[in-house]
């Protein structure tokens, strides 16, 4: 991750620092009005124009040699911005990272302000698939903001709106088991308020990166390693991976990991019954050094 993240947080993990979750920080940055404004028309963010560009037709824009580079540069500058966000209609300082289950649980257990956990309908699944699925865990001042915006509040049969820590951990674990990718987000930098359970191709956090080569999200602090001696070639892990990082080797009848494609979500581990997979620290793999 970036300098900031290495200096703060526990063991280089920016998201394990309760300071970035605190109401005081949100207040200091004056984010209440800002986030309310942003979420009022959140689904329209991709059609709004900034600096002459919107995300509409992004694939074709990126194919143009000069414009393509300008668009990438502009988008990354905006997403990675560390300046105080001024315009709620821009995804300024809205950058995230993949988190596996253990880190997500650590976040929920140690970083979240008291009594502020909520579950809201996922925006991405709704705006890109028309599906209402309650799987976005929010906290801090987001609980007040979403409370004012009825379309994000789950119907009682889908989920409770306010969650206890235990409920949030239980839900998040369920999502990982379904193959949803855990992600943690600044919104806006350096305030953290979203623990998401994402699916491609709908997720607007992953799509710029996976389809258009724009770094909109960072890979996890981890990467998967396999132990071919334990692998039984059952292929369960392969169906879990949303990034095509695991292939079946016909010769050895074993799963093979392409670590350069692995985002470190850890979902494959959860379905392996033979302890053939485990997460290792990304930094410790020389070939992946700095590959976030």
């Amino acid at each position: 991750m970036c300098d900031h993240c290495l200096k703060h947080g526990t063991a280089g993990k920016w998201y394990l620092n309760a300071k970035f979750y605190s109401d005081e920080l949100a207040e200091e940055l004056d984010l209440k009005e800002f986030l309310l404004e942003q979420y009022k028309t959140f689904e329209a963010m991709q059609v709004r124009k900034f600096g002459g560009f919107s995300a509409v037709g992004m694939g074709y824009k990126r194919q143009m040699p000069i414009i393509g580079r300008i668009v990438k540069h502009t988008a990354e500058k905006m997403l990675h911005s560390k300046k105080p966000s001024r315009n709620p209609f821009k995804a300024e300082g809205h950058i995230g990272q993949v988190v596996p289950l253990d880190d997500a649980i650590a976040i929920l257990e140690t970083c979240i302000p008291e009594n502020s956990l909520i579950m809201k309908y996922c925006m991405c699944r709704y705006m890109h698939k028309g599906e209402k699925e309650a799987c976005c865990i929010n906290f801090g001042i987001m609980s007040e903001i979403i409370d004012k915006l009825p379309r994000f509040i789950p119907e009682p049969e889908d989920s409770k709106f306010r969650l206890t820590k235990e409920e949030a951990i239980e839900k998040f674990t369920e999502f990982n088991k379904k193959g949803y990718i855990g992600t943690i987000w600044y919104g806006a930098y350096p305030y953290i308020n979203n623990l998401c359970a994402c699916q491609t191709p709908m997720c607007a956090g992953f799509r710029p990166r996976t389809e258009f080569g724009i770094k909109s999200i960072f890979k996890a602090e981890y990467v998967v390693e396999n132990n071919p001696n334990n692998c039984q070639g059952c292929k369960r892990c392969i169906t879990m991976c949303q990034f095509g990082a695991i292939e079946f080797d016909d010769k050895t009848k074993r799963a093979v990991i392409d670590q350069s494609k692995c985002y470190g979500c850890g979902n494959c581990l959860l379905v392996c019954r033979f302890e053939a997979l485990n997460l290792v620290t990304r930094k410790e793999i020389p070939a992946l050094a700095g590959d976030y």
Partner: peptide
């Protein structure tokens, strides 16, 4: 399948 559509409040 590639989810290319976006449903959003009409600006």
């Amino acid at each position: 399948e590639p989810a290319i559509f976006l449903l959003h409040p009409s600006l």
